[in-house]
Design a protein around this nucleic acid. Sequence first.
DNA 1: AAAAAAAACAAAACCGGTTTTGTAAACGAC
DNA 2: GTCGTTTACAAAACCGGTTTTGTTTTTTTT
Lengths: 360, 360
Amino acid sequence: MAPKKGKLTLKEFSETLGLSKSTVSRALGGYSDVSPKTRAKIEAAAQDLGYVPDPLARGLKRGRVESVGIVIVRGTPALYDPFLSEFLDGVSRSLNARGRDLLVSTAGSTQEAVEVYRRLIEARKVDGFILSRTETHDPRIKFLRSAAVPFVSHGRSDSADDYAWFDIDNEAAFVEAVSLAAQQGHRNIAHIAAPPHMNFARLRLKGFLRGIAASGIASKDAPVHTAPNLDIESGEEIARRLLLLPDPPTAIVCAVDLLAIGAYTAVKSLGLTVGRDVSIFGYDGLPFGAYLEPQLTTFDQSGGDHGAQVADMLLDVIEGKDPATLQVIRQAKLLKRASDGPPAQSTEELARKIACGDAA
Amino acid sequence: MAPKKGKLTLKEFSETLGLSKSTVSRALGGYSDVSPKTRAKIEAAAQDLGYVPDPLARGLKRGRVESVGIVIVRGTPALYDPFLSEFLDGVSRSLNARGRDLLVSTAGSTQEAVEVYRRLIEARKVDGFILSRTETHDPRIKFLRSAAVPFVSHGRSDSADDYAWFDIDNEAAFVEAVSLAAQQGHRNIAHIAAPPHMNFARLRLKGFLRGIAASGIASKDAPVHTAPNLDIESGEEIARRLLLLPDPPTAIVCAVDLLAIGAYTAVKSLGLTVGRDVSIFGYDGLPFGAYLEPQLTTFDQSGGDHGAQVADMLLDVIEGKDPATLQVIRQAKLLKRASDGPPAQSTEELARKIACGDAA
DNA sequence: AAAAAAAACAAAACCGGTTTTGTAAACGAC
DNA sequence: GTCGTTTACAAAACCGGTTTTGTTTTTTTT
């Protein structure tokens, strides 16, 4: 257990074995021109004396550093994003299992993120990148593709299909939410959308509209308002605006949980009951949703799994697999809780109730 | 802008300048034996041609890699900790400003974290570590100290004072919370404590007790219950238990915001009003607290600043500064909101109210 | 049994820098 | 004007590995 001081070097190690550096290196590297007997001896000794090649020296020659990077863009849904923590945990686990590490940096915008990429590539600190929260037109993807640096993105951008990505079927999830609401009897269903430069926002809106069409609801009964920011305040503000429409929606499908939480506040402040007067659907599966009153119906993201899978994909790309063959889409899982249900009354009645309550 | 293919190497670079590798290297390194004229020329050319030394090669010779590591321990207050995100952001900013990067890994326990440290040190992937969420007896600190690896911890452990740390004055914060409550007229003040193996928990409890003593409250009127986990459920369960005591507290001081959020639920489920019947104090400054009804009174942590400062301290240690001289303590800032106030009634009256309401 | 081929290991070059040591020219002192 | 210092740069060693090329020795082929 005595941790060697200044580390055991290949030269020393091979000398104690009475062999040359090259033979030892090749033996450990699994090359063919080493006799089985010698190889066994070397491996045993390495184990024994705790010889581990210095990754710096190895990286210098090999051109790899066994680390991957992720640059987190501040703002938008904020760093304050539980999903992100879980995601990072998944990434880290997966990387560690394969002897790699994760380098994390932050940036104020995707543009700034590109600068960080540039620096990290130049400095040879990573072998590839993981992208998250992709935007519709994402400069990061453009850059990394042109720089020919391995990467995998969590979420697609518009520029389709010759890179590796992992994505949730956002569209299908929102079709599902709308269909469920329609089935429960809602005829006026609103959507609080996320800013459309986020790619997931576009897809969720698309799903919402498809769901509306499939349910035979007129588009005038399916108002879409876009939240300026993905935070609770915005959710409250927009939800309030929706409920004060002449034909208020009896169900509100929110692009993300934070908006849904804001919507709760709006509904309650109008003297209404979430889940009866107004149904609310979220998306993200924030743990917090289970503590709302009533518990929020939402979609689970299980960030850990996503992170692990994305990391695995990236390692494959780094090892030479064709990125275009690595495209995975997964279905979101509805977390049915208590914020949805058949509407207690029609839109007209709801409008009247709001008018009275609000005046009161 | 043409990004050089296979990177510009020192050899190539010095050849185009008609100088030797060594001279160029020494010029850029700021050594003395280069004429000012030559140095200027070299620096201009480096800027121009975009020459950046390969950190791998440099690290190999210098023994430094210009990265620091942080190993996040899952569980306990969970990865789902907004403070952590901000903290990481601060660390990253500070490091990037000084040309360093952050390597992030996760572990299931502090013991496991030590294994990760060992691996990262062996693999020479980092020059030092940042620790967070220190425990009272922290094996990580013991290990890093014995391994003589630079580190700075965010939060102290019991083993006092020959390493670098940055900490909040937890004790003072809780004295303040209790004093405020006492001043508002509370004579029965409870504490929901965090598990005592977390060092901050110990200090907060200590502060609570000191505040109680200073306010002349009998210890029998200051019950302390320890939450098994730092989550919302635990908070609810313990708060409920406290409120069903014969002499229920009119104020509950919680070790962390998550517990306070749980306490809200307990108070409300007993038909009581937070801030009137029962005052609640949190600690953490979770953004979410501002959306509770009523808004949670808590202490601000501003994780970003902490992270930045800790990172700066670590770089100082790595550069040879004596860790024992780097010990910073900062005062927490009370975020006075609406969950506290003078008690609406005495303990006895509250007990009666609870008994009735609960029966009803 | 001689020539060709394969096996097993060693020597040397290389990755891209930094640092130590060397050396020619310019400078200063006596 | 000779000798000792500086000054300014170059050559070479080194960091700790990997990989290419070389060299024996053994085995196979004919």
